[in-house]
Design a protein around this nucleic acid. Structure first.
Lengths: 251, 251
DNA sequence: GGGACGCTAAACGTCTGACGTATTGCCCAC
DNA sequence: GTGGGCAATACGTCAGACGTTTAGCGTCCC
């Protein structure tokens, strides 16, 4: 999307093209700190100077330093605690936060014509069967047990995200691949789909069939039947897709 | 990762388990505004009240309102402009920003033992051949032309990300699928890999071969040979992977 | 002697008020 | 008619003050 050349005629309607002549101080401070954190100069757990000193170190006021810290904190690069022994600390990288953030961003994009729900379903159809294959190839005994448990877990209809320890089957399977990247890509997609499904008020009509599919896939993985696991998962996703389509929740 | 039960013995070393008793006001304001934006109550382009009024509306001071806005702004949900006719506006969702953010987050995670570079390569090996297949199936004339151009584009070695309009071949191909989700997943991975590659100072020894692969894939796509395109891309990725491994940059 | 209570200090959280500065539209002079 | 300067608006930044949370430590009472 190159900047469109001046249209032939009068004034080009370049509404959304404001330039940023000077970066505000709080942004400069945030960028500098971010650079240092990403470069490893400030490893996770490091305690930064208190806000007053930090501001003085950068030659800005405490308010400005605070705004910079708010930026970094909202990107989960640092976290702050109150009280003595409190302060601002460089955060440990946390995949769960990344998943949350990506899911939120996808939720926004999926409301635009740029990203359609069918795109998410297609991506899922690409990811999860492959994940099932990898899980079947690699899962150790403990992981297999986790997958089995997730497949057998009672579906708490009225209590979504109920108690700790209950992970969705698809999530468990993504993690069972041992490749965090697959979880990072697949989980946000599933989150968005589930959210939309719930908001659309889709009823639980065939969830016993869904559970049966899950158990079948889990068994394939337990037995190390990679191709069968992949195929079963593909069928399962296609089936789910049909369910979504029938309920026509993507308007 | 369930919270580990109290260990048998004395005090459980629950170092990183600080609770958040009360959410700070700036966080509450940010959350409330974010909710409204995500719910569509504040569509993109909406101009929020100025910082003073916004604070008054929430019963907080202007500084607190500003910190809330910094949070939202760093999440690309709003953007601010100065001057008369300035103010805070709800942002248009922008896939490029999402790609940037995810790439940054991945860059952090890849420095931990949680996410290995080989995980990225595996994800890429999963995504891009599928993308090549889809592109071959769907690409229209214009898209084909873009892919061809990207494949033929002179590789500017010393001028990375040189001029506008030059897009990486892999990026172009991801976009050629017409499925934004694939770009959203694949692009950050490629960005991280490219960054590490550059930092590791990998030399351009076989890039002519790489370019030949690109052109071959582009031709497959142009001719609509889906399976061939997929297979060629798979070989290409495997080849690249070998190149990465030989240069041993993932230490 | 041991445990509970309360005090204290450090740091973040919030408020107030003020001034600087970028941006834009309008008016006036030429 | 056009160019330049003025005014209004809203963000950007600063300074200082006070409240609040938290952990550590000392003291007092049992």
């Amino acid at each position: 999307m190159p900047p469109q050349p001046p249209a032939s005629g009068t004034s080009a309607p370049v509404a959304h093209l404001r330039v940023q002549r000077v970066r505000p101080a709080y942004r400069q401070v945030a960028d500098e700190l971010r650079t240092q954190i990403l470069a490893g100069a400030l490893p996770a757990g490091t305690r930064l100077p208190n806000e007053g000193e930090l501001g003085r170190a950068f030659g800005v006021s405490r308010s400005t330093a605070r705004e910079a810290l708010r930026v970094l904190s909202s990107q989960h690069l640092v976290e702050t605690h109150r009280g003595v022994q409190g302060g601002t600390f460089v955060s440990e990288p946390d995949p769960a936060r990344v998943v949350e953030d990506v899911g939120s961003a996808l939720g926004v994009l999926v409301m635009t014509p740029q990203l359609h729900v069918s795109d998410l379903l297609e991506a899922r159809l690409l990811l999860e069967p492959a994940a099932a294959r990898l899980a079947a190839q690699r899962a150790d005994a403990e992981t297999v047990e986790a997958v089995r448990t997730a497949a057998a877990a009672p579906r708490d209809d009225r209590d979504p995200s109920g108690f700790v320890g209950h992970l969705d089957f698809h999530t468990t399977l993504l993690m069972a691949t041992g490749n965090l990247m697959l979880t990072l890509m697949g989980q946000p997609v599933n989150d968005v789909l589930r959210t939309r499904l719930r908001r659309a008020g889709v009823e639980a009509r065939e969830w016993d069939k869904v559970d049966a599919c899950h158990r079948e896939i889990a068994e394939h993985i337990a037995e190390g039947r990679a191709s069968e696991a992949e195929e079963a998962m593909r069928d399962h996703i296609v089936e789910l897709r049909r369910l979504y389509e029938r309920d026509g929740f993507w308007a």
